[in-house]
Design a protein around this nucleic acid. Sequence first.
DNA 1: GTCTATATGATGATAGAC
DNA 2: GTCTATCATCATATAGAC
Lengths: 214, 214
Amino acid sequence: MPVKKQPKDADTVLQPTEEAKTKGTPGAEETRTRILDAAQCLFAAQGFDATPTKAIAEQAGVPNGLIFYYFPTKKALLETLIAERNMLPAIQAIVHLPVRSDVHATLVTLGKNYLKVVKQHEELSRIMLREFRSHEDIATNFKTLREEQLRLIAHYMEEAMRVGGIQPVKDVQVMARVFLYNLIFAGLVDSLSNTPRFIEDMVDLLLCGIARDE
Amino acid sequence: MPVKKQPKDADTVLQPTEEAKTKGTPGAEETRTRILDAAQCLFAAQGFDATPTKAIAEQAGVPNGLIFYYFPTKKALLETLIAERNMLPAIQAIVHLPVRSDVHATLVTLGKNYLKVVKQHEELSRIMLREFRSHEDIATNFKTLREEQLRLIAHYMEEAMRVGGIQPVKDVQVMARVFLYNLIFAGLVDSLSNTPRFIEDMVDLLLCGIARDE
DNA sequence: GTCTATATGATGATAGAC
DNA sequence: GTCTATCATCATATAGAC
């Protein structure tokens, strides 16, 4: 059975195989990662069902059979991707940045950073958006992720407006939701509106034109 | 070769087969429709690649081989679905409704009607959202559809605010886009926020709290 | 137009040598 | 851990009887 770990950070490897220690041999961990990388890339581009394990093996540079040494089934490969490569930590990092007194600028920065994170996790996000109807666990993960993001963003917005001295016109929850949904859709579907301009316009709209260029 | 028509409205059938005229025999057109219905249902639930033609045939109550009498390939079946069952006419009907002097109420009605149309075309919309990355023609169709909807909604909003005597804070284009993207996402992904309350809150936010209960 | 039987190829997964 | 060869299954699509 393969070593199943949650390598959040690299370098936290438990027992780097003897060969990997001494020579340039790939090592089990790197092979596993290469398979995951290839699967992520292909699942995102063609979808889970349209991607043969053979294609994954080819892109990873390993024989087909080796995939099933590291993952019991093709589906487990998908589930591992979703479980191990979570974008939530990156979002948390963003909302821990300090807010400035300029609310508009703060929210625009938040939007740009958020879109940056989505782009960095684009393949995984696309996979989730595409497969969450077929796979219960992905649906759950996706939903939880959205709720967590909503919570974090709403909290950040609240803080930003408190510091900026702005009385929100409406519940911040609604603002956060409109903000989040638009950025997800803009980032994952309508790549054309993926411009800084769109974010500024949206924040402008959310803030009702006030607090601009404070 | 099968009769390829674009039955926008029913009853526009060209030559109802003799049997269909006289007896209760299904008739070619109905068989074709049943296959399309089954495909639509299954593609939406499991995805195109995960749906065998055999499953479509079973759900339609026809033998597997008959599918390929009406459609040359499985992919053609998908393309026919997208081409023949377009939701744009329904959207056009919505934005031809008269605007009232109460802008808030007008936009809330627009939102509710839009969500209703999306729900009526839910299966097709889900298919588009899921498959547009793999099929060029679906991507094009999807994009065009979004742009058309954006145009229609922006125009309708402009009219609503002109009649309501409200000076829009920002470009109506931005408002329309935020409105549309949120409703698509709410309707197709986050079914929980698919509530009248969400629409009202969103319109409230878009209108900056003004024009409420005029 | 409808149905049965089947060709042909690809797929996920396994066995076992190294 | 890595690799080759292969199994069993199921997929799309076709041929041809009715």
